[in-house]
Amino acid sequence: MRALLSLLAGALFGAGLLISGMTDTTKVQGWLDVFGAWDPTLAFVMGGAILPMLVAWRLTSGRTPIAGGQFPTKAAPELDRRLILGSVSFGMGWGLAGLCPGPAIASVTYGGFGGVVFLLAMIAGMCAAPALGAQLDRAAKAA
């Protein structure tokens, strides 16, 4: 049951990324490039994606997930250096190549050799993150 729902969610996510144009790096960079030929598509994608989720979050109150378990609790509204520095690093990479994790995974079968290299580099970064994150926490404690 859980695996089937996951497969469905992944398939919907993949279909949405493909038809919205979000696996096309020129459209994503077009949104970020306010000094170039600015492309507003990403705002429509983001807005469209938020709508069903506004409803979904409302539906979580007083219920439990279909496949059992509990809904995720809301994290404390804490703005730590992990959130800030991590998002800066992510944004820099996103601007450079025009790919974020979802589209990088979704386009791996048709993004050519470069797409595979990006995915592998991203995985390498993900594997290095726990150690670097711990370093940041130590630096935060020392400060």
Binding site: S6, P40, G47, P52
Partner: peptide, 29 residues
């Protein structure tokens, strides 16, 4: 293109809603 963007966005949000309401998880790639 914005129509495709909106339609694709709705599908992405629907996927996230299935993952949340079905499995109780946040769909983060």
């Amino acid at each position: 293109e914005w129509v495709w963007g909106l339609a694709g966005g709705l599908l992405i949000g629907l996927g996230a809603a299935v993952y949340l309401l079905g499995n109780g998880r946040i769909m983060g790639a």
